[in-house]
Nucleic acid binder design. Structure first.
Ligand SMILES: [Mn+2]
Ligand SMILES: [Mn+2]
Ligand SMILES: [Zn+2]
Ligand SMILES: [Zn+2]
Lengths: 136, 136
DNA sequence: TTCCTTGTTTATAATTATTCTAAAGAAGAT
DNA sequence: ATCTTCTTTAGAATAATTATAAACAAGGAA
């Protein structure tokens, strides 16, 4: 449970002005026990439901990208018509339930270390992500 | 090197009528040594260059999805504004050069077997894909 | 062949996710 | 209170993809 004050400080420390909208979005995104996987439209709808206040879609996009740029959100590569984001910004892997269109975190020990035996001259590894698709 | 006749048979066997357009697309896609990673617009442009004949964009979409449905093409999960396809339909992993926006196949032995230690009741694993992002 | 049915191509319109624009509003500094 | 800069917003613009429906081509039967 993070207090509104803490979000305000975190925003200020990130040189993001603590607006009403951003604080609401923080509360929806980060006041949770578990990691949260979402699309912009998930979030847009959830804000209306949880806070009662409507935030414009443009602001939701702006804020998600601001948070993403600051490293508070992660983008998850899935083939879908919508971009998925994740409040768990650590390096980790996923199940993707194709039918439910739901992402599930895997702990690193659920997969174990991945040793990449190949390299490309002049390039270095930025991230390693495993996506395990699930069906019924 | 696959002959036009073989493509015609393969199309017939898949209950896809061997039209001029489909045969051309087969030649562009499948007459190669190495696996080919592409977006629809890559393919659209390449067809014009390689065959001289222009195929409508709608037909390129239709054909790629027909081939995808038949299992002759694979969709690669990357976060990009465009969908990537792959002529290598076996289970395999990728480097993605973020700057060049290019996919590179990894052999399975470049990564080694991935043991997934977690399971979700009622669900089974459909695919396991590793995406390694590369930067300079 | 010719005719018929069904599948295919195509231009174009529609849809959808995302980004852009520019004006109004709010935050923070002085 | 005033000024500057950042933010929000509605709405327009963009871009990938999908849908529509008319013209066309393939394959089978007569
Ligand atoms: Mn996650
Ligand atoms: Mn590949
Ligand atoms: Zn982003
Ligand atoms: Zn497809």
């Amino acid at each position: 449970m993070t207090s509104k004050q803490e979000f305000i400080e975190k925003l200020r420390n990130s040189s993001l002005r603590p607006t009403k909208q951003r604080i609401n979005i923080c509360e929806v995104l980060f006041n949770r026990d578990k990691t949260f996987h979402f699309t912009i439209s998930d979030l847009f709808n959830l804000i209306k439901d949880k806070t009662g206040e409507k935030i414009s879609l443009a602001t939701v996009y702006n804020t998600v990208h601001a948070f993403h740029k600051k490293g508070y959100l992660k983008e998850i590569p899935i083939n879908s018509n919508q971009t998925y984001f994740d409040t768990n910004v650590t390096d980790h892997h996923h199940f993707f339930d194709v039918k439910e269109e739901k992402l599930i975190d895997l702990k690193n020990e659920d997969i174990g270390p991945i040793e990449i035996q190949k390299s490309i001259p002049g390039k270095k590894i930025k991230s390693v992500e495993v996506l395990v698709k699930l069906e019924d």
